[in-house]
Amino acid sequence: MPLKAYDLTGRTAFVTGAASGIGRATARLLAEAGATVHCADRDEKGLRETRALITEAGGSARTHTLDVTDRARLRAAVASADRLDVLAAIAGVMHTSTVLETRDEDLDRVFAVNFKGVLHACQEAARAMIAAKTPGSLITMASGAVDAAHPGLLCYSAAKAAVVQLTRTLAAELGPYAIRVNAVAPGWVRTPMTDRHDAALQHQAEQAMIRRAPLGRVGEPEDIAHAVLHLACDASAFTTGQILRPNGGTAMPW
């Protein structure tokens, strides 16, 4: 059993991006802590696998196949929960292009998922919590990319920087309702999203990260999931408006 401050028994969590990577690791860990987890993603096969992993371990999970850019589907999925205590808005996409090569459609797609998808999830979750007068925790997914300039990552880092400001503003606005809002800004983490890059370039990036990181390694999805769990539970009851940076100690993870 988890320590009492980390016990989510009787609570309900909603996790976007739950079909793989950080989202899957988070859904599994929240379920292990006792929460009923609603898992959302557009990858139906990945969602089934996540649910199977949770239920096989004795946890409780429901799945919602949706794209976070579809606000109506997102609203319906959040409304289907009997109650809502935790939101982990993790769904995201990666795009690389120089500033001069960036097209409007690139910027629109990345902001639609990485910023507006987070905004809409937070809005729907917060409205549900306020209506039910339920204290809660909203956790957004930022990135270490917001802390320095990274050539080729304009769309991604700009959207994540917007998430940071969204997090701080929501924390100020929702505090009176006993709803906490915090962000996690990971360093380089091995996930299916980062694995889509050229293998040689990925190896080069990982080695650069390892050289800069005092802990001497890149992150794993479970490392970030534990940061989310901390912000989701009573152990962080006096924490809001903060950006937690699990990045192995480096300020420039990319």
Rank of each mutant, 00 (worst) to 15 (best):
M1I: 15
M1L: 15
K4T: 15
A5Y: 10
A13W: 04
F14Y: 12
T16R: 14
A19F: 14
S20N: 13
G21H: 05
I22K: 08
I22G: 04
G23A: 07
V37A: 10
H38A: 15
D43L: 04
G46T: 11
G46H: 04
R51C: 11
E56G: 14
A57S: 13
A61M: 12
R62P: 15
T63S: 15
T65G: 07
D67G: 13
R71H: 12
R71D: 13
A72I: 13
R73F: 08
R75H: 13
R75P: 11
A76F: 00
A77I: 09
A77D: 12
A81R: 06
A81L: 09
A89K: 01
V93P: 14
V99P: 08
T102V: 09
T102C: 12
D104W: 04
L107D: 04
D108S: 12
R109G: 01
F111H: 06
A112V: 09
N114S: 04
K116D: 09
G117K: 01
C122W: 01
Q123L: 14
Q123W: 05
A125D: 02
R127L: 14
R127E: 15
A128W: 08
M129H: 06
I130Y: 02
G136T: 11
T140P: 15
M141S: 11
A142W: 12
A148P: 13
S157K: 05
K160A: 02
Q165A: 05
L166Y: 02
T167C: 04
A178I: 00
I179R: 02
V181H: 00
V181I: 01
N182I: 10
R190Y: 02
T194G: 07
R196V: 04
R196T: 08
H197P: 08
A199H: 00
A199Y: 00
A200S: 07
H203L: 10
Q204C: 00
Q204T: 10
A205V: 03
E206S: 03
Q207W: 00
M209N: 12
M209P: 02
M209T: 14
I210E: 07
A213H: 03
R217L: 02
V218I: 11
G219L: 06
A225G: 08
H226G: 06
H226F: 10
V228R: 04
L229S: 03
H230D: 06
H230C: 08
H230E: 03
L231P: 14
A237T: 06
G241C: 05
Q242K: 03
I243G: 04
G248V: 13
T250Q: 02
M252S: 13
